[in-house]
Every structure is written in C-alpha cells, then in structure tokens.
Amino acid sequence: MLVTLRVRRFNPETDLEPRFQEYTVDVPEHFTVLDALITIRERIDGTLAFRYSCRMAICGACGMRINGLAGLACKTALRSALNDGTVTLEPMGNMPVAKDLVVNMEPFWHHLRTVRPYIEPHPARIGPQNEYRISPELVDELSEVVRCIMCGACFSDCTVDEIDINFLGPAALARAGWLVRDPRDSRAADRLRELSKPHGIWDCTRCFFCVQVCPKDVKPMEQILRLRRLAVEAGITDNNGARHTQAFVDSVKETGWLDEFTLVPKSWGWNPVALLPELPTAVRMLVRKRAPSPVHPRQPGVDEVRNLFEKTERKRSVKDDA
C-alpha cells in the first residue's frame, strides 16, 4: 500500500518556522502510523524525530496529532487514518516542540505534580496491621482513571489549556478524581478545596475534547464533573462555578426550564449582567403532517419535573445513584 505521510517538522535550534514534509512509502496494509514512521526513519530520513517505546499503547510515549486530533501513533491503524492516501502528523499541542513530533511534556508533568498524584495515607494508618476496604464497584470506577498512561493527548487538545496554560488540565484533574475517592488517601477534603480554586475543576468548559482523544477511555471530563459534584457535596460552594450550577439546577426544578433571568445574576452572586437571549427556544418538535395529540391537556410539566427531582433527592440519602 502506497501512503503519504505529511509530517510537520521543526527543529527549534536551527529552524525559524515549522514546515511540512511529505514522505511516500510502500508499507503493508496492517501497519500502524508508528510502523510507517519507523519505516520512513529506517529507509528514507534518519533525521525525522518521534518518540516511542512499547509499541502497544502502554507506555504513552507516542502521542501526536494525527489528522488534527491527538492520539497514539502505535494504536492508530494507518488505513483508518488515510484521507486520499495521506495522513497528516503534527506534534501535540499546548507543549513546546523539542523536535519534529517530539514535545517537551514539562507543562503536563508540572500540573500533575501540583495535584500531588500519589496516595497520602493517614500517618496513623501506615503499616501492615492496617487494611483498607474497597467495594468491587468502586474498584471498577477508579480503574477508569488508573488506566491513564500519561500520554498527554488530552492535555494537548484541551481547549482551556490552549488559552490558559495554568489550567490544571484533564489528566491531572482525572488523577485527583481518583485519589479523592480512594479509601487509602486521607486528603480528600483538602484536595477538593485545592481543586475548587482558580485553574481547577470549575475552569473546564465541558468541551469533550479530552473524552474524544483519550486512547484509554479515561473520560477525564466526566471525572472532573464528578469532582464538582463531590466538592459541592462537601460544602465547598463559595465560587461562581458551584453557584452557577446550583442556580441552573434550581431553575429547572422550579420551572422545568432554564430561567436565564435569574441564572446569571445568581451565579455571579452579586453582579446582574446581561440576559442570555434565545436559550429557552432550544427544543422544538419536528413533525410530518400530523396533528398534535392531546396527551397533556393540563400542562402538568412542572409538577412532573419536580416529582423527578424529589425522587432523586430522597434516593440520594440511601445510595448515591440514579
């Protein structure tokens, strides 16, 4: 199979600007993107820089942008990535390029260190005489995050880090989301307070990029949203993020709808800013020639919505699930 790899090349020590270079190689159909890169380096151009180690989606070294989205070169089948026989490869974003497809991941590691990514047991409980209990369900939940291989793909494509590199970012926050719920860790409350500060959990825009690109299905955004829930439940609500969510939830509960006239002032806590037009027009029905059937003649909507809210609230006290 004849394929062309369009590779963004840049050596900060000698080049003024990045440029694209095209390599055309003949490779077997079953090759991964990484296999093709290795072939190029062996046969065509020994100066092409990229990073890898395990070649089996375990070490997290081969992260790069493949056709514009971050992913692992060793986990991406070349065939699936081809557009008219070409695949475009670029270094990951939000991190400085060391050379060609290799980035310096220091910003990523820096944020990871900030969240203290290790279990910190209570000093009195260290030692073989102490054991910790954990339910199989929680093990399943936590393993979603444990399987993170620190490849940096999520951080590369995070839309908030792109404009504010101080944002802790998806992987570090996902990691913190694990530790907060791990029974062996003793700092859950402190962690939640730290994570609720600026650059933490409330700065995520819920853009889904990290969920989309994570090669290990860690779903970092979902972990962040869970942390928000846990922070609010722990009573850490003195920030605009928590207030905004509460105002939104109250509005849907009371009116069945989003009352943007109170939402914004409520979430600012003090500053009534402009109203948001048009949001309530969000849902409309599409029909093919049929009259509306009189299902709800008396508009019971709001009562029903409240009923569902209350059911959940009652249940919450028994067990935290749907």
């Binding site: 829930r229 939830v249 849907v252 989003l258 309530p280 020639k289 509306p292 919505v305 749907a322």
Partner: peptide
C-alpha cells in the same frame, strides 16, 4: 410542521448532568 412538546423540561445543557447524571437522563 412544528409541534411544541408541552410540559417538556429543559435538557439540562450539560449542567444538570454534572450535578446528577441519573436525574438528567430521567428528565
């Protein structure tokens, strides 16, 4: 032909989902 869904609730726009995914799916 548009037919209004009388009594339908707001979708939650991802915000309700973050507070309570089960409730959001129910609504």
């Amino acid at each position: 032909e548009l037919v209004g869904l009388e009594g339908a609730a707001c979708t939650g726009a991802g915000v309700l989902q973050e507070r309570d995914p089960g409730l959001a799916d129910t609504l």
